[in-house]
């Protein structure tokens, strides 16, 4: 799969990161290399093989519906870049 500058810009936008022209150029090459390396896998015949998402043979791990203490508001807000009263403060969201 050929990666172009447009793809890099699209991915950067999805990830909400800003890239310089130099970085975009660099990632076009790096991502292309990575993809062609990974692309090796598609040479294998995977017909009738179900995609594997889990590497361990375990399932059905649950917790019971029993409340546990939450953490204090002070601790909750400790890592917040910005707060206002009991809330987290974020740039204006318009809809």
């Amino acid at each position: 799969m050929k990666i172009g500058k447009k793809d890099i810009e699209y991915i950067a936008n999805l990830s909400r990161i800003e890239l310089s022209e130099h970085e975009k150029e660099m990632f076009v090459h790096q991502l292309s290399d990575i993809l062609s390396y990974i692309g090796k896998i598609s040479e294998l015949n995977t017909e009738n093989v179900t995609p594997m998402a889990y590497t361990i043979k375990a399932s059905n791990v649950f917790k019971e519906d029993i409340p546990e203490p939450s953490i204090s508001l002070e601790d909750v807000q400790l890592n917040a870049p910005d707060i206002k009263g009991v809330f987290f403060k974020v740039p204006k969201v318009i809809e």
Partner: peptide
């Protein structure tokens, strides 16, 4: 294990898991 009670003071029923702190792991409520 945070409570789902409605109408309580904001941000008092949260913990590292539901705040999405790095390294925490979710466990499904049966």
């Amino acid at each position: 294990g945070c409570s789902t009670k409605f109408g309580v003071e904001p941000n008092t029923q949260v913990c590292p898991v539901c705040l999405g702190m790095p390294g925490v792991l979710p466990v499904m409520n049966k």
